[in-house]
Design a binder for these strands. Structure first.
Length: 277
DNA sequence: AAAGAAAGCAACCGCGAGACC
DNA sequence: CGGTCTCGCGGTTGCTTTCTT
């Protein structure tokens, strides 16, 4: 593993980040540090990360403590290989959301954004490339080989945000919901149908709304987040059904018909809900 | 068996948003 | 209302492990 680094004045840069302070340890965590952090959070709870290491007696920066807890020490973190159904879910979520790792992780119980991001970069993106699919856009790398669908290829790139291949540098969920001003009108019936659809489909495969930690912010804060969660589930489910229906047909045609496109994006769903409660 | 390459993954970094003063 | 602080996120780095030659 990585050798722990104890930062001193010689290695500290001009950065003013917390981790550049003298005496703050970097590198891999030891079992002892893990124990100290886990025990402290068990007793005192998480949060206030900046002051937590001092209170817990750790020579780490708050960021490092938070990351360690979120990605490794949390009891809800699931270790072990990604199951095929989880992989399928990651693919579908990435198709819909782009590199919104925290959002994706929020829909996969026990998995962290870091883990999913790593898995995507090391496995899934390579798999897609080997299949001739662009992992960023989920479209064919060589459109020529895809026959009639190629005719729509250029248009798709311009105006269909079925996934978000180039998300902005800050990818908060709120931004996801607010970035598209292309207001596509929806009716009360449509939004109601999606909501009702969610009720029928249930939450078995998407996981429970996460109760803590990374990505869980999507679904744990208030009614709007809950509604977004439900909406996201409906997107995933409908997307899956349409892919099955397309069944080796024109994948991208099916994609265009996805609920994401019908709504424009989740923000439109919210706007609509707020205007028509 | 040894060396180099590739893969895997934990951790770091910088930035943006929201909270707080 | 502007400045500062804190948190959380996505991108990236670099060390360790595994595979290949």
């Amino acid at each position: 593993m990585k050798k722990p680094i104890l930062l001193g004045t010689s290695t500290a840069t001009s950065r003013t980040q917390c981790c550049s302070k003298v005496g703050i340890k970097k590198g891999p965590w030891t079992a002892e540090e893990d124990e100290v952090l886990a025990n402290y959070i068990k007793i005192e709870g998480g949060g206030r990360w900046r002051t937590l290491p001092k209170r817990a007696g750790l020579l780490r920066c708050g960021k490092s403590c938070r990351l360690r807890w979120m990605n490794y020490l949390r009891p809800t973190v699931k270790r072990g290989p990604i199951a095929p159904d989880e992989e399928d879910l990651i693919l579908r979520l990435h198709r819909l959301l782009g590199n919104r790792w925290a959002l994706i992780a929020g829909r996969i119980p026990g998995r962290t954004d870091n883990e999913i991001k790593n898995y995507w970069n090391t496995h899934l993106s390579k798999n897609l490339i080997s299949q001739g699919i662009d992992p960023r856009t989920h479209k064919p790398l060589n459109p020529v080989s895809h026959g009639s669908s190629q005719a729509n290829q250029d248009d798709d790139d311009d105006d269909v945000p079925e996934s978000n291949p180039n998300p902005p540098s800050s990818s908060k969920s709120s931004e996801l919901m607010g970035e598209n001003t292309n207001s596509m009108e929806t009716t009360n019936l449509e939004s109601h149908q999606i909501y009702q659809h969610q009720q029928e489909v249930g939450d078995d495969c998407m996981g429970q709304p996460s109760s803590s930690g990374n990505g869980g912010d999507l679904v744990e804060n208030g009614n709007e987040d809950h509604m977004f969660s439900l909406f996201l589930d409906s997107l995933i489910t409908d997307n899956q059904q349409q892919q099955q229906q397309s069944n080796n047909g024109d994948l991208w045609e099916a994609e265009i018909k996805s609920p994401m496109v019908e709504f424009g994006n989740p923000q439109n769903y919210f706007n609509h809900q707020q205007q028509h409660p």
